[in-house]
Design a protein around this nucleic acid. Structure first.
Lengths: 293, 293
DNA sequence: ATAATTAATAACTATGAGTTATCAGATAGA
DNA sequence: TCTATCTGATAACTCATAGTTATTAATTAT
């Protein structure tokens, strides 16, 4: 009568909370249904709260159960994280850094930073992950990521931000477009054109920044194709599907017959920032921060 | 050979990490020493990392062990938190809010807010805890607290801040002091006096704000007594030990023969803020935030 | 009616946590 | 140098309980 809560209970609970079916959950756990029934009941007495409502032909979560589900999800993801870090440390590494980055930043800054990090701290393992801006924010908050390279200026609630670099935007037009750097005056010259832009899901912050360029000129662009890949955007521009606005540095590294017109006179600039969770206890966080500051 | 990590392992590990002595740890756990030895070794194989270095007459943590210790500490505190919340929810409550507050704010705002919260959400339990400013910040980051009422303007990294109220500072002088509201001109009139102030450990942010009042007048005050209790400060002022600077609202609720001179013309004002961790999943957070906004 | 689901119950079995007894090495004292 | 004492590891046990099979009771579908 005085046993303890074990991870086993929580694992079983977690699966049952997903299946909402004792037999199926038991199957998924490779145990028998009565075994599961008993462990779940134990868990309920141990917590002093009923977690499932058992109808005659259905099982569903109570409020308490719903709460516990989100908590155990987090708990297990933390355990996974502990396992990974521990393995690394056991192998003599200091830490494993999970770095996210936005595709358009891969060209320049990130390789350099990571190269310097590796030279200074060879005992820190880095895993890279290309992710949209907002996905990085969520991943950081859920401790699925240690660092994120994003295109945005403000730190979202709960995260810290360090500015890495800043650059002007550039218009991307087809090679034989009548407008070029010399005769470019204003975006209004493109009032009749389609615009090919990064989608809102790439980064809401970034999207709004680009949109503010248009609203400063007092016109609403016709946006036809939204995509998250820089190369795709260039291809679309090349084929005459429209013109694009991208961070100027993107011109490096691609060999597509398109022309870049830097927007040096507008106040909007694209900022690349490093995001991280100040609550994180990853022993490698300090090392990277020290490097970029 | 294919068992799983259980909380038992982590509990044992945690105690051993504190005792660094198998027999003593086993004693504290009410199990035998060989049993502990075996469980720890299991944990080490399961994690694939050695956690303790066993010398002939000593046991100490490896790097991996040190890392795991901080992680399990957090893990167990989360489990405690889950237990508490689950108990509450099981009893039909929505949540339990752990609210911290700084002593000098108890008089006015907090009772009002909590009264309204309770009337609107009787299913939310609130526990109150008087804590210094900085202790609240740490507690919030460690998820030992859901809300903190603090005297500071900026949100510390990782926390969100909502301004609650703002008020001028006031000078507190003995009843028969020559300076009073009518003939008060500048703080420089007190250049020769001692100042009784809240200590730096009450809140660094607050301390610097008060100090900036002095530096704006270009003088360094002679601070003789530092204390964290408003009543103590008033008593010291009454006894002629010096004058004080406190948030003006503190004059309510105390009956001490001291005189308050409101500093309405200086830019510094004392701001009471609500702090919380945006990463917190406490279901009661939204309710209180809604109320104060 | 009958068959097919569901979860709960009862009685079992066997795994492995925890036990006792002992060992091997180290230190310290006489 | 011989003991006495302390350490954690090892070996062989036993017993509590997780997980088993078989069954029931109650529901729904045919």
């Amino acid at each position: 009568m005085s046993y303890q809560i074990e991870l086993r209970h929580l694992t079983y609970f977690n699966v049952l909370a997903e299946e909402l079916h004792f037999r199926k959950a038991a199957e998924r756990l490779f145990i028998s249904q009565p075994g599961l029934t008993r462990q779940i009941r134990q868990l309920e007495t141990l917590f002093g709260a009923s977690l499932f409502e058992r109808g005659k032909r259905f099982v569903k979560l109570t409020d308490a159960g719903r709460f516990l589900k989100t908590e155990t999800d987090i708990l297990f993801s933390q355990l996974d994280y502990i396992r990974v870090q521990l393995k690394k440390i056991g192998e003599g590494k200091r830490a494993a850094l999970r770095v996210g980055f936005i595709g358009s930043a891969a060209q320049t800054v990130i390789p350099d930073i990571l190269y310097r990090l590796n030279r200074k701290h060879p005992d820190i393992d880095v895993s890279l992950n290309e992710l949209p801006n907002d996905a990085q924010v969520t991943a950081l908050l859920e401790n699925k990521l240690d660092f994120g390279f994003v295109r945005q200026q403000q730190a979202p609630a709960g995260l810290s931000l360090q500015k890495i670099s800043e650059e002007p935007f550039a218009l991307v037009v087809p090679d034989k477009h009548p407008v070029h750097t010399k005769n470019f005056r204003s975006l209004r010259q493109f009032e009749k054109e389609n615009f090919v832009l990064f989608g809102r899901d790439y980064s809401n912050d970034y999207y709004q920044l680009v949109m503010s360029i248009f609203s400063d000129c007092n016109f609403i662009p016709r946006v036809h194709y939204q995509t998250v890949n820089a190369l795709t955007i260039f291809k679309l521009v090349e084929k005459g599907m429209g013109v694009a606005i991208v961070p100027a540095s993107l011109k490096k590294g691609y060999d597509i017959p398109v022309r870049f017109i830097e927007l040096n006179r507008i106040p909007q600039r694209s900022q690349l920032s490093l995001l991280w969770n100040p609550a994180s206890r990853n022993p490698g966080i300090g090392a990277l921060l020290e490097l970029v500051r």
